[in-house]
Design a protein around this nucleic acid. Structure first.
Lengths: 150, 150
DNA sequence: CGGAGATGGTGTGGATTACCAACCAATCCA
DNA sequence: TGGATTGGTTGGTAATCCACACCATCTCCG
């Protein structure tokens, strides 16, 4: 515990931070009756339309899972299916106005929820952290999770 | 996008890192036919026994959810229920030898999977990151997630 | 062309995860 | 002792997720 490999210590801190943030996001999402995955879908669609398969790829989910996820969100009026003009097979998914509204407030909530924690760091260290995380995400060789998976 | 509030940029990086790490962990867990939650349970039990309610509290889950989770893991021979010597109501959960073995290899996998990414940072910056994350986790006011929720 | 194969989505079935509410059993305390 | 609290389990329901089978639409090559 006290005499720990520094790599392990960093690993532990990273994983712990991950769980911490995930917990915050999950609780926040639940506030709006959303799952974390649904929030991610909304986040992706915030500023673009996307096809079902692309969404599934971004999130690392099966197509059929995406289909169901979209079904439920569509039933709630948060997003809509639209025919892709270039490919008759493809289905574009877009946010409805209600979806946009919910997405906006949800993201403000995230900001409000995490800012106090981030403010535990003085400004210069925030910049430092941003820089370090940027490097980690940089051109992460394994993931290629697609653009802005938030 | 390019002209983004610095706070938002950090928020984005933090959330993205979270999803990235979660993705890695989830895929790794799936390798061993485990869910991320199950891995977390194993991680908690790595070096101690714990009662059902405590586990649920650590993970932010309902007692009944924990009960089912334990059921399935027990059926797989990964852990066992044991009577708590001090409280007749309580049920202690402990890893079986098989559970310990699986936990060990799973954690080596995590190490192997994340180390290359961490090595994108030179040593001193790793120390810096550890320090920054430590501050964030520090005495995080909102969560109080319990000891070593990994 | 035209048909074989690839690609995009949907639907079904089953396991897991998760919640809530209801319920026993053991403990606490007044 | 007896009521309230705490610890776990059970049952019911919904969401999530995968694997598999299936249909529709491309794509490409012969």
């Amino acid at each position: 515990m006290s005499s720990e490999d520094p790599v392990d210590a960093l690993l532990d801190a990273l994983v712990r931070t991950t769980f911490e943030v995930t917990g915050v996001l999950t609780r926040l999402a639940a506030t709006h009756d959303l799952s974390l995955t649904q929030v991610r879908v909304l986040g992706i669609l915030r500023d673009r339309r996307a096809r079902v398969t692309d969404l599934a790829a971004y999130l690392g989910l099966d197509k059929s899972t995406m289909s169901g996820l979209i079904d439920r969100a569509e039933r709630r009026g948060l997003l809509a299916r639209d025919r892709n003009p270039h490919d008759g097979r493809a289905v574009d998914v877009v946010l409805t106005p209600a979806g946009h509204a919910l997405t906006r407030t949800a993201f403000l909530d995230v900001r409000d929820a995490l800012t106090p924690t981030l403010d535990r760091l003085p400004g210069p260290q925030q910049a430092q952290l941003l820089d370090l995380l940027g490097t980690l995400l940089g051109d992460a060789p394994d993931g290629s999770d697609g653009p802005r998976p938030t």
